[in-house]
Design a protein around this nucleic acid. Sequence first.
DNA 1: ATGAAAGCGCTAACAC
DNA 2: GTGTTAGCGCTTTCAT
Lengths: 377, 377
Amino acid sequence: VTRAPRDTLEPDGRGDRAEPSARLPTLEDVAAVAGVSRSTVSNVVRGSSLVAPATRARVQAAIDRLGYRPNALARQLQQGRASLVGIVTHDLPNPFMAEIATLVERACLGAGLGPMLCTTDGDPGREEQAVSLLLENRVSGIVFLSYLQDPEGIAGRVAGVVPTVFIAATEPWSDSVAVDEALGGELVARHLLELGHRRLAFIGPTRPDPADRLRRDGFCRVVDGSGGAVVAAGWDGGDKDPIVDGSPTDWAGILTGPGRPTAVFASSDFLAIDLLDRANGLGVRVPEDLSLVGFDDVSFASFRRIDLTTVHQPRRELVRLGVERLVGRIDGRVEGPPALLVAGLDLRVRGTTGPGPDAPGAGSGSPAGERTDAATS
Amino acid sequence: VTRAPRDTLEPDGRGDRAEPSARLPTLEDVAAVAGVSRSTVSNVVRGSSLVAPATRARVQAAIDRLGYRPNALARQLQQGRASLVGIVTHDLPNPFMAEIATLVERACLGAGLGPMLCTTDGDPGREEQAVSLLLENRVSGIVFLSYLQDPEGIAGRVAGVVPTVFIAATEPWSDSVAVDEALGGELVARHLLELGHRRLAFIGPTRPDPADRLRRDGFCRVVDGSGGAVVAAGWDGGDKDPIVDGSPTDWAGILTGPGRPTAVFASSDFLAIDLLDRANGLGVRVPEDLSLVGFDDVSFASFRRIDLTTVHQPRRELVRLGVERLVGRIDGRVEGPPALLVAGLDLRVRGTTGPGPDAPGAGSGSPAGERTDAATS
DNA sequence: ATGAAAGCGCTAACAC
DNA sequence: GTGTTAGCGCTTTCAT
């Protein structure tokens, strides 16, 4: 039964209502104009080879004339899933996330998948809400760019339902791509020890995620093994005091008090830059009085005014590997249990680290002028 | 005709294939389990009041048991449009954009609209591609966060088809929300003139958008009217030389040569911070040798290490007004021709501006210590 | 090479 | 209150 195209020019006799936007043309309309059936138009649209050149031309003409655009909703309903992928991230304004998110978004578009981006602010409720939205829209896959607050809950919702990949984060139940976080912490520790620092500090978020922990553990392991001491603090940036041993302590006390650390490793550039700012405010000079190391190597880290020594995460590679894998899962090329892919990382020594007071001698160890910016992977 | 639910437990006698993920339950399945019709389940799902409490409970139980989730694709196909809104932006890593995008995304989610985010890198092709994707997915509205490369082309595609709003940008054919860009330029000019600067420079992108032009024009108008001189340069940041009067000139020449400007107004914080970096690299001190002003007031601008004097754009208000208007258009509350909504802006004086060499006297005009950070709108 | 028919999962009149 | 019916616009066998 060929359904009659609904009339557009004659609104059932009601005459002259000037509707601003008329109904969009459908396959049916094109078929009517071209004098063929819906299936034939469909074949033309999807580039099926089983159409006579003459017919194809006629149909194409009708398409152009009507300005026909396929309705992705209908197509996707028919196919059982949408050509969309969800991207879930903690906070976008964090430059590291923004950079990764852009890369992911671009890679998805390149694969013909529309990106739905949801931020969660680390709120489990918003996490749940985001995943629900994505699932209801039948996305073909989901990319997570941060650790989840409620991994179990989310796993229950998505595992086995839709392919997922974690980028710069890991979950045992999903494909994941990340760097060796602990190794990053170790590199930082060695660098600072070589510079002669012995009293060290680590700062991470008050609610650390697994990556923060791994970075800290790698760091502490090496320092402990070399006779250094580490004090760990929890801090989320901003004006609130950091937490040391469960109780708030102000920065002045930590950075200028007796037994103060001579070097600090922050588990993200975000925190490091904020701390840099505060240290300067307290009259603590970097790197003369205090060495500072971050993690991520966001674009701002290499600005001269910041010039932060940090651990570089290979963003492009992380994203490439992750999206490649997700797309593989989506079209069935990749099978088997979830895998963890590891990308390389390296330390970028810049201007916020210098010799410690206990250094064996000025200029020994790692000369201040030695910059490894060029040593890119 | 009640369609028989396809059997899930008995895959047509083929027996024991252990499918990893079985088909997701549909309305039909829920109806079968609850012993009611599809419409009743639909009524329950959508919270229609016309359902007997007992029935509702029974249906709800079936929903929970099956883990039923509505298929947004089907619903949206039926309703003719998707509960999605497109967000189109130039570049996300620009902190100003990232901050705005997050706010927009949150506001949309709050209004029950799923955010599809597309970045274009200022490439007309990707612009077109993004809009096509959004249109094919029948989004209910589109938010543009930057000026378009091909406004005419895009207008032809979306005008009258789907509601749109420009935020921090304007187009005559669409609702728009922006600050008074020219006024911003004027405020900067007055500030610098008061400080005693007379030889001024403006830098903007090599391909300025209308906002860049308005900022420049407002700036130049005031400076010209006061006997100052302005040299304008085009620069996109990075290592390429800026363009002055059509020919590339290196920063050293501009900033240290004879007749060098004593103050620079950059049309975005992004450029300003990059320039700050380069000036420092050339041994030019800010603000002693050079005053510097940006535009946008991104979060980094207030960092102590940066401490950039800049024009503050009220992000939350811009987004609130814009999304409110778009949603109004979508559900028909707002009608009539496109409007331009204007939000207030103000100058945040920080540490990158100081008295000029031609200043009437040290400390006159605007004392260096006077900071207006608190003067928030 | 083209067309007819049967859905995909849901909503919305309209009966009962 | 609840069920019946007719689509939304597209894909996809299966005939012809």
